[in-house]
C-alpha cells in the first residue's frame, strides 16, 4: 500500500488521529500535517516521531551481533528497561517540560556522541540513559530555564549521583560542544587530534550548505521524512502519517520513498546513527 496516497486520503479526517485501535490495515491511516518550524510542532507529535526514529535505530543496532563486552559504557543498563522508548520519552517530556528544540537536539546528540565515542551505540540497553542525559544536557545548554539534576534524576529513574556521572561523561566525550552546529564533529575531532581547543570556526565555504546554524531544522525535516510514514516505523504507538504542512525546500523535496530506501540500505551495515546524517 502506498502510504503517500492513503495518507493524503485520511488527512480529511483529523478526528481520527487520536485513534489507538490496533492496526487492522483496513482503516486508512490518518495524516497529520506538522508546522514547518519545529518550535511550533506539538510536542506529543515530536515525541512520537523521535521515538519512531529511535526504535528504528535500535532495531538495526540490536541486530548487529556484539562480539565482546569491552565496549560497555556508562549508558548501558544491566538489562533492557521495561519501559518503551515512547513512554520513557513521554515521561521525560511531561515531567521535565522539555522544549521541542531539546527533543530534536537529543537526536542530533546521537550522531555527535557516536562520532566522538565509538564504543557508544544506541541500542535497547543504552537508549534510556542516553535520552535522560541528552535531554538534561540539552535543557541546560539550550533553554533559559531548566530543572535541577535531582529533578531530572527523579524523572529519569536514576540516582542523582548517577546522573552527575552520566552528564559529565557525556560532556567530556563531546568536548562540551553541545550547541547544535554542523561543524561540531569536525571541531571535536580536531581538538582530540591536536589536544587543543579549537576556537577559529571553519571558513564559511567549509561549512555545510545551511551555514551551520540550522542543524535542528535539518534534523526536523529529516526525521519527518524518514519516519513520518506510519508503515515504515517499527514503533506503532500512534497511527498517523506525519507530513510537513508546506512542502520543504525544493532541494529536500525528494521522493520520500526513494530516500527511505536509500537510507535503509545505507545504514544496515554500519552505525545506525548515520541514517540521519545529512547529505554532504
Amino acid at each position: 500500500m502506498s502510504d503517500k496516497e492513503s495518507g493524503g486520503a485520511s488527512a480529511k479526517h483529523p478526528d481520527l488521529t487520536e485513534d489507538t485501535k490496533p492496526d487492522t490495515g483496513e482503516d486508512p491511516v490518518p495524516e497529520v500535517a506538522l508546522p514547518n518550524d519545529f518550535s511550533q510542532c506539538p510536542r506529543t507529535d515530536l515525541v512520537i516521531l523521535i521515538s519512531r526514529m529511535l526504535s528504528f535505530l535500535i532495531r538495526i543496532n540490536d541486530s548487529i551481533p556484539k562480539d565482546n563486552s569491552s565496549e560497555l559504557t556508562r549508558f548501558h543498563s544491566r538489562v533492557p528497561p521495561q519501559i518503551s522508548v515512547y513512554d520513557y520519552l513521554m515521561r521525560l517530556t511531561r515531567y521535565s517540560s522539555l522544549e521541542p528544540a531539546v527533543l530534536i537536539a537529543s537526536v542530533y546528540y546521537i550522531d555527535l556522541l557516536s562520532a566522538m565515542y565509538t564504543a557508544f551505540s544506541l541500542n535497547s540497553l543504552t537508549v534510556h540513559r542516553f535520552l535522560l542525559t541528552a535531554t538534561t544536557v540539552g535543557s541546560k545548554g539550550l533553554c533559559d530555564s531548566f530543572c535541577t539534576n535531582s529533578h531530572y534524576a527523579k524523572v529519569g529513574g536514576v540516582q542523582c549521583s548517577e546522573l552527575h556521572v552520566l552528564e559529565s561523561e557525556f560532556l567530556k566525550r563531546v568536548n562540551y560542544r553541545i550547541l547544535p552546529r554542523d561543524d561540531n564533529i569536525l571541531n571535536c575531532k580536531a581538538e582530540r587530534r591536536e589536544g587543543l581547543f579549537v576556537t577559529a570556526t571553519y571558513a564559511k565555504e567549509n561549512r555545510g550548505p545551511n551555514n551551520g546554524f540550522n542543524v535542528l531544522d535539518t534534523y526536523y525535516q529529516k526525521i519527518i521524512e524518514i519516519v513520518g510514514s506510519y508503515d515504515s516505523s517499527p514503533d506503532k504507538t500512534k497511527r498517523a502519517h506525519y507530513v510537513m504542512k508546506t512542502p520543504p525546500a525544493p532541494r529536500e523535496a525528494e521522493a520520500p520513498k526513494k530516500k527511505r530506501a536509500h537510507e535503509e540500505s545505507e545504514s544496515a551495515g554500519s552505525q545506525a546513527s548515520s541514517s540521519c546524517k545529512k547529505p554532504a
Partner: peptide, 9 residues
C-alpha cells in the same frame, strides 16, 4: 515513581 535498571558499570 520509576526506576531504571541499574547501570552495567
Amino acid at each position: 515513581d520509576f526506576t531504571l535498571p541499574p547501570p552495567i558499570i
